[in-house]
Design a protein around this nucleic acid. Structure first.
Lengths: 68, 68
DNA sequence: TTACAATGTAAATGACGCTTTACATAGTGA
DNA sequence: TCACTATGTAAAGCGTCATTTACATTGTAA
């Protein structure tokens, strides 16, 4: 599941730590999601969408799972 | 995180087993999500939205977490 | 009554999300 | 050079997601 978190962070000039603080998660979690190590939980995906004032569908791209 | 899966299932006249088959998960997983025992993963949430041709935001309601 | 479908629930197990601490690299500025 | 920020990665641990098998209840139909 791809996402454009890195670009959104850049547009806001936020470090991974900045975003992690706003989300209430660790910097490593943000990094892992950005680098595709795993997908966020649904509640965290909602928080991310809220912070950037976008929908989950706008930030996370479907059709990128390997189990399909 | 509340959802309207039960209503959507009823509108399509699907049993929990029917939906589980379409999602590729167990019937117990569908039941657990409906009864609020846990939230689906983000990929599963996307599959659910796809099957009902809706957005994740339409099916799952934010503002229902207890950790807020 | 007997059989079956649909739903709710429970326990044990494995995989994943997220944590913490820690180390490494690259870039920037004093 | 030295210090600092930003990023990537690793390992160990905990809680949640999702599985399987299994049992119970309710309703319906033969």
């Amino acid at each position: 599941m791809k996402n454009c978190l890195k670009v959104l962070r850049a547009e806001n000039d936020w470090s991974q730590q900045d975003l992690a603080n706003r989300l209430g998660v660790s910097r490593q979690s943000v990094n892992a999601i950005e680098t595709g190590k795993y997908d966020p939980s649904l509640p965290l995906a909602f928080k991310i969408a809220d912070i950037f004032a976008m929908t989950i569908e706008d930030i996370f791209e479907r059709g990128q799972e390997e189990g399909e």
